[in-house]
Design a protein around this nucleic acid. Structure first.
Length: 357
DNA sequence: AAACCGTGGCG
DNA sequence: TCGCCAAGGTT
């Protein structure tokens, strides 16, 4: 017998739900993909990425066979690139050890790289109709208000789980979970919750108290330091040098212009020559400035300056380093350049690439 | 446990 | 303008 709570919630959901590309999808791979893309990312942002990805990579096997570079190119701009690398690894595991079929078993699925409790519960409930409840940012906010939970919300999940398992609709666990998240994003919003449209208002202790928006209680975040970065577009014979970042850490596996951080009081051209020598072994002469862009990452922000450069000494060999490539401007579209570097390309392309001559 | 990991939108 | 945050996971 479904709970009164889930009946009211699903009645609202059936009427109000949006038509999304992955709604009603039967293929567990596509549900999984959508859940990975949706991590910390809003629905409207994900939609175009999801559509293009599925068109190019229609199956687990197609992902398993792809190169990381091509996958990252499709992920370019979506952020949190470890999601893409981990999804690639996980698809390879599914292809090689599970016959290409997404395992419908909790422990197995949870063991995959990039799959945590949220993603496991979401995929198993939506794609396989198993009775796992999800707890994401939306659900935390909804539950904190329903229960008038005043502690820091990170520590509230055990209580939330207990309550959700009682309310979960066993026949439609996937829809119940999506309804809870939809309720959080559309009705029980962080600011100005629309309680007058809420199907479960009668269950809400925070509403009864009078000011639901005081929940949830979130700790303040640290402020981000600011860095100044200089990079060079190093020309040689009509080509310029790009370098691949290490797989782990910030923007792992993606491409950038060689360069680095300005030390205290250091002149920009000095930084440029020093960093390029350290990273590539090349000695360069800074030339015209391309421009500068501001960009904010999760834990710091930067101003990135870009200069055209020429080599002080001609290359001895063909200049093929391990993590470096000499490419022509037309080849730029094959490589994923996220964040600040992406903004620099927009400036470069508006300058028709010839201003360094 | 607390930091780290992107980006775009919003008030 | 700027701090905050969104369908989290890993170390």
């Amino acid at each position: 017998m479904p709970s009164r709570f889930s009946s009211l919630l699903l009645q609202w959901y059936d009427k109000a739900r949006r038509d999304l590309p992955w709604r009603g999808e039967e293929d567990p791979y596509k549900i999984w993909l959508s859940e990975v893309m949706l991590q910390q990312t809003q629905v409207e942002t994900v939609i175009p990425y999801y559509i293009k990805w599925v068109e190019r990579f229609p199956s687990i096997e197609s992902v398993a066979l792809a190169t990381q570079d091509e996958l990252l190119k499709f992920w370019e701009g979506l952020g949190y690139y470890s999601r893409c690398r981990n999804f690639h690894k996980a698809c390879k595991i599914v292809a090689s050890k599970h016959g290409g079929k997404v395992p419908a078993e909790w422990e197995t699925f949870l063991s995959f790289p990039g799959v945590g409790e949220y993603t496991a519960a979401a995929v198993l409930s939506i794609a396989f109709h198993q009775p796992y409840s999800v707890i994401d940012g939306n659900v935390k906010r909804v539950m904190a208000r329903l229960l008038a939970f005043s502690e820091i919300v990170e520590k509230g999940t055990a209580l939330f789980e207990e309550k959700l398992d009682k309310w979960l609709n066993q026949d439609r666990p996937g829809d119940f979970n999506q309804a809870m998240m939809e309720l959080g994003s559309q009705i029980c919003r962080r600011n100005e919750p629309r309680c007058f449209e809420c199907p479960v208002e009668s269950f809400c202790k925070a509403k009864a108290e009078g000011n639901p928006a005081v929940y949830p209680n979130i700790p303040k975040k640290k402020e981000r330091p600011h860095k100044t970065i200089v990079a060079g577009i190093i020309w040689n014979d009509g080509k310029f040098l790009i370098q691949k970042r290490p797989d782990a850490g910030l923007l792992g596996g993606l491409w950038e212009f060689p360069g680095g951080k300005v030390e205290n009081g250091e002149a920009l051209d000095n930084t440029l020559v020093r960093e390029i020598r350290e990273e590539t072994g090349l000695i360069v002469e800074p030339g015209n400035k391309v421009g500068a862009v501001d960009h904010a990452y999760t834990h710091f922000s930067i101003t990135l300056h870009l200069y055209h450069c020429k080599l002080s000494k001609p290359l001895k060999d063909n200049g093929a380093f391990d993590k470096h490539r000499w490419i022509q401007p037309e080849e730029r579209s094959q490589f994923a350049f996220p964040g600040a570097n992406h903004k620099l390309f927009q400036i470069l392309e508006s300058q028709t690439w010839t201003d360094h001559e």
